[in-house]
């Protein structure tokens, strides 16, 4: 079972910026234990562009699809046997990243 694991940051109350080494170590463990599928940190939401090509021509808009205080700062994809395993890892990830984590199953 694969889960999308989102790291959520808060613009008005951001998590600490010194987490990189801890995250790297955590990633090593995820790989060693067979949970790791993919990981990536994201650039600021200001760098996002939304494209809507459902009409006659593509419309580009600057910024994320939804403006909010809380935003997606990075993602993992994990392979885990069930939600309990994913939630246990996510609880660790929240400490490691100093941020909230959302766990959402793939279909």
């Amino acid at each position: 079972m694969q889960y999308l694991v989102s790291v959520i940051d808060d613009k008005s109350n951001p998590g600490s910026t010194d987490r990189r080494p801890a995250i790297s170590a955590f990633n090593e463990r995820l790989i060693a234990e067979g949970y790791w599928v993919f990981a990536g940190g994201l650039a600021d939401t200001d760098a996002a562009t939304v494209i809507d090509n459902r009409g006659e021509q593509a419309v580009f808009s600057d910024g994320p699809f939804v403006e909010s205080k809380e935003y997606l700062a990075g993602v993992w994809v994990w392979e885990a046997p069930d939600l309990d395993v994913a939630l246990k890892l996510a609880a660790e990830a929240s400490k490691v990243c100093d941020r909230k984590i959302e766990v959402r199953p793939f279909q």
């Binding site: 079972m1 046997p81 069930d82 939600l83 309990d84 766990v103 959402r104 199953p105 279909q107």
Partner: peptide, 14 residues
């Protein structure tokens, strides 16, 4: 079903 919440006893820690 979708999130695969397991059908088992929780671990001793939990």
């Amino acid at each position: 079903k979708a999130a695969r919440i397991p059908y088992r006893m929780p671990s001793a820690d939990d």
